Simulated assay, not measured.
Amino acid sequence: MNYFTVNKCGLYRQTSPKPQGLDLAETFEAITNWVRGKPLSDTLPWNANARSGKPKCYCKDIYTSEITGDILVVLWKSESSGSGNLLGAPEDAKTGEGNVVTQDAKFKGKKVIWGHPMYYWIVPSEELVVSIKFENSVCDSQLFQDWITEAVTNRVDHGNKKKEYTASGQTRLSFADGTVGGDFRYRYLFDVSLKTENTANAAMTALASNITHVIKRETITLKTADERAMWVKLFNTFPHLKPAPNSKTREIEIKAQARPTAAEVKKIIEGYARENRSPAEWDNVGFLTSDNKTIWVDRYRLTNSIAYDIPKDQIVTAVDLCEAIAKKRTNFLAPQIGGHAIVATTRTGT
């Protein structure tokens, strides 16, 4: 489990930071009404042709608890390849229905959308979003935010939604407040960020006091020599450091002396920590401490774990996962309420 703070959710005017309607509960109620009874293929909230190269994303399942008001959303990220076996979700199955199948060259049957599920637990009472990663699922918080934003903007029914056309023929969607003589225009925004340890936490304070350097790793694209930054070109003057003739990238590590405060450390962690960074991935940000240890920003995410038995190559329904969470809801909410990280690994059963 990775915890996210909800920075924005609702209808915003450009001149005001305060939302006017469509909070977390209202947003997901509207989305639930929109996807109810729809086949999977009809829950893509944007024009696929307008987002070429971007993964498609659908709503596989959604459930709201009448007791807690929590929402469990299962999105479906379409992928043509990826780690582990891809799963196929029937494209004509209605929201919350339809079994998945395992990718197989010999598979024949109904049309399916190949990909992986993404599980998100939304807690309106705490202004909180939690991503849940199992062995056969993926996490993509940016895609999740995009899907919610596009679904509300383009698809859900809302009494004050306005559709206008620009001089160039483009469609402009907005929301109005409906007041007589006012008719102020609003834009729907949905933004979340990973939660990290509180700056008052002893571990964060201790980390800040021991930092001697900030480290940034980045992969540089070497299309042409002229496109590279001057400081990168300086490496050409050193022996054995030139990239291979056909090399298109170079892995660079920058290490700068720094003594950031706890607040500055928290800001760096929040800006660069990720929920789904691969251990083998080069690009990262971290700190070098006085005892010569390297600590990467992902270590200070607020995390937790849930054990759930999942049949091999199957997925969890929204209602079942929501009910499993409800049994230990207080424990699962403790890290974000208390500001203390519980670093653990999510596991699945077989």
Rank of each mutant, 00 (worst) to 15 (best):
A48C: 06
A258G: 06
V74K: 10
M204L: 13
F287K: 01
I306Y: 02
V74T: 11
Q314E: 08
I342M: 03
G286C: 03
M1T: 04
E91M: 15
L207Y: 02
F144W: 11
V101T: 11
D283V: 09
P239G: 09
H158P: 01
T166I: 12
L288F: 07
L24S: 00
E79Q: 14
K110R: 10
N210V: 14
T317E: 12
L173Y: 00
D320V: 04
K106H: 14
Y63C: 08
T153S: 08
A341G: 03
V316A: 09
F144Y: 15
E227Y: 14
M118L: 15
Y120M: 12
D177K: 02
W76D: 03
S305K: 09
T249P: 09
E323S: 11
A203D: 15
L87E: 00
P19D: 01
I325V: 13
T289M: 07
W76K: 05
P55G: 10
A225H: 12
T102F: 14
S209H: 08
V101E: 04
G349C: 02
V214E: 00
T27A: 11
T330G: 09
F235H: 01
N246C: 05
D104L: 09
A263N: 13
T261K: 13
M204E: 01
N136R: 03
N33M: 06
G82S: 05
E150R: 06
V285D: 04
A307D: 07
K216L: 11
F332T: 10
N304D: 13
S125W: 04
R217G: 12
S174F: 09
P245A: 08
A280S: 14
E150M: 11
N136T: 08
R13T: 08
A48S: 07
Y3V: 10
V214R: 07
T219R: 06
A89R: 00
A200F: 14
V214P: 03
T219F: 04
M230E: 11
I310C: 04
N201I: 14
S81Q: 10
L222H: 00
C139H: 10
N284Q: 12
V265I: 11
T261V: 11
E323R: 10
Q14C: 04
T43S: 07
E251D: 15
G10Y: 07
D23T: 04
G178Q: 05
P124Y: 12
S168A: 06
V192I: 13
F175R: 08
S52Q: 13
G98Y: 14
H240V: 09
S141H: 13
S52T: 12
P117Y: 00
W34K: 03
K163C: 09
L40Y: 09
G349I: 01
G96K: 00
I337H: 06
A263Q: 15
A344H: 02
T221D: 13
S278R: 12
G96Y: 07
P279I: 06
S305T: 08
G286H: 02
A105S: 05
K327F: 10
T345V: 09
W34Y: 12
D23V: 02
Q314H: 06
E270F: 14
E253K: 15
R228Q: 10
P45W: 03
I342P: 03
D23A: 11
G182F: 01
N33H: 05
G349W: 02
A89Y: 08
S193C: 02
W76V: 03
G115R: 00
E79N: 05
S41A: 12
K216Q: 14
K94A: 02
I325M: 09
Y165W: 12
E251H: 14
K56W: 13
I325W: 01
L11I: 03
L222G: 02
